[in-house]
Amino acid sequence: MTLSDRAEEILEALWIELVEEKKEICRVSILKDDEAIKNLVRLGYIEIKSPQNQIQLTKKGEAEARSCVRRHRLAERLLVDILDCKKKLVHETSCKFEHFLHKGLDDNICTLLGHPRTCPHGKPIPEGPCCKDAKRKPEKLIMPLTELEINRKARISYLQTQERNVVLQKLIAMGALPMTEITLLQRFPSYVFQVGKSKFAVDRELASCIYVRVI
């Protein structure tokens, strides 16, 4: 059975606190009578330990929670970079949006986005099975410039903006902005790409911040 939106959010919050931030004790306030909590306990996702009423994730729950976080962060990436959602709304909308990305759909979105490593806030997106597959066969719509075929025309989709600010400023200076056409000319010993009539040589670190879509 599927979890309620609220249950998923509880799982997310727990995962961030316990797994990602490695906190000993969870701050999530518990209402024992809460339907969602009861449901999660019943499904064996969480355990409530007395005497202090601490919540803990079970193994099964941890996997489910990780997947929830993944969906939320993918949703954010999608909304910010592709759908150009107004910034204030990103969190709210993606909170609703994530619940639609069930079983398999999240992997499709992930593939569409080129298996991004982080959400727009710079937090890591947990890897899904598709990300592992992708490392074997490069069939993606959006990919980092480092993986683009040589001499293939592409358009910049988005930049990894949470990298060091200087990196972003350099990309802006080179005119490597979203919507711009870009061609990779070579990848060794340095990456050389062309934007408009200008050619730039960059290192791997910079090149991997540019996500492109083949046209």
Partner: peptide, 10 residues
């Protein structure tokens, strides 16, 4: 100090 980044117009 920070690792150097390379970019150069050709």
């Amino acid at each position: 100090g920070e690792k150097p980044i390379f970019y150069m117009e050709v």
